[in-house]
Amino acid sequence: MLINKTGEINHMYRERYRLLLPNTMTKRPSIFKQWFEETGNLSAFAGRYLRDSLRPPYDFGELLRQAFEVGYRSLGLVAITAFIMGLVITIQSRPTLVEFGAESWLPAMVSVSLVREIVPVVTALICAGRVGSGIGAELGSMKVTEQIDAMEVSGTNPFKYLVVSRITAATLMLPILVVIADAVSLWGAYIGVNIKGVVSYDLYVRQVFDTLEYSDVVPSIIKCVFFGFAIGLIGCFKGYTTTKGTEGVGMAANAAVVVSSLVVFIIDLLAAQITDLLNLN
């Protein structure tokens, strides 16, 4: 299993004595084998999360702490990014629309692309960077400094305390972050629209909400639930299964960011296809 210390230490020893042993004994597993092993372990990890998250006792205190960490603490960064995205997308879209003489469609077009795609994905990437690496590094260092072991021997289920709270917090907070980021980005777009043109606030709001449909907003929020889950899951997985001491902590944080960013895009692709399949566009 994945928290099998046997396997990890085995790996550790093998790495340590690699140079002394014959080549065949130290051969690293092939990339495919590694990939499948990693995917299997990740799935088992997710399964354990689902099981443990439903079973009492629930640790609300830690959940709130993590929610604060993931949600509130990311707000500033996410808001700045969203504002800039709103502004930039508007400025960049204007020339094309002007060419078609459809400048008045700017708020409508920009709001749809922001709400449906840009803000959720950019927010998720920011969170993958901030939250994913944070979780990966924190759990990784707890792992290598035996803090997770210490929790285990003190009779607390560290998986529940550390992993369940973090994944749940990320899953719940990301959609809220995205809603706020949507609002901020639309505000940025309003300023963008008014840099070269003049659109009153009332007209802008009217055009934006005239264009937006439930089928724009709701799927994008649902998508974010999965983004949050993926970011929390991968950050925790990479951190919780860290080996090789302090070097491993850096690798865990790095892998958490890289993998969760990639997974965000994969989920986005799937979400686009599913909404398309369900005719929600």
């Binding site: 949600g71 809220i176 809603v179 706020i180 609002a183």
Partner: peptide
Amino acid sequence: FVTGGIFLLMAAL
């Protein structure tokens, strides 16, 4: 933060 987010979502919907 949570209230603000949910309020914004409700307002938008």
